[in-house]
């Protein structure tokens, strides 16, 4: 945790433009893609990355991306026996930890949050996955949409047939 806070402090020292570029680097984009996205030249992107690397002690691009992902948001997932995804709390640098779904303090949750190997799982990006996240649920949604459209089509066809029947010949 202390290392993460130290790394967060280093990232906080970056300018907005440097952080903007690093955010896209952490997403796996190339300099060319970042340049196109931000509307700047590729050399400007490389320059910002190089300055950031020097400020962070000569770290590689991949290391900076990893640190950015780790320090942007921490999500601790506590597996529970009767839920698929578990309960989770979110810790953000500089904020007080919120206590979700448990009367214990954040420290007790941290101690019990690991999956037996002490591994915390940070989210890669701050937004959560767009629901539903399970393949089975997504399949169910697709089938539900199909039947909804089919039902609408049947209603439209029935209405067209009825109108055709009552229309004067």
């Amino acid at each position: 945790m202390a290392d993460i806070l130290k790394q967060t402090a280093l990232l906080d020292a970056l300018t907005d433009k440097q952080r903007e570029v690093i955010a896209l680097v952490s997403e796996g984009m190339t300099s060319k893609e970042i340049a196109r996205k931000l509307g700047i030249s590729e050399s400007a992107v490389n320059q910002r990355i190089e300055v950031t690397r020097q400020r962070l002690g000569g770290m590689s691009r991949a290391q900076i991306a990893r640190i950015y992902r780790q320090t942007s948001t921490l999500v601790i997932t506590i597996p529970t026996s009767n839920s698929l995804t578990g309960k989770s709390i979110q810790l953000q640098h500089g904020a007080e930890p919120e206590q979700h779904s448990s009367p214990e303090g954040a420290e007790a949750l941290l101690a019990s949050a690991s999956n037996g190997t002490g591994v915390l799982q940070p989210s890669t990006f701050s937004p959560q996955p767009l629901a539903p996240d399970s393949t089975v649920k997504r399949l169910a949604v697709i089938v539900a949409v199909a039947f909804g459209l089919l039902a609408s089509a049947v209603l439209v066809l029935a209405a067209a047939q009825a109108l055709n029947a009552i229309a004067p010949k």
Binding site: L130, R138, L139, V141, I142, V143, V145, A146, G148, L149
Partner: peptide
């Protein structure tokens, strides 16, 4: 099934019809 998007679910439903 794989994308982090919702609208392909509607597209897939229509393709299934």
């Amino acid at each position: 099934l794989r994308a982090n998007r919702l609208y392909p679910l509607v597209m897939a439903g229509a393709a299934l019809v």
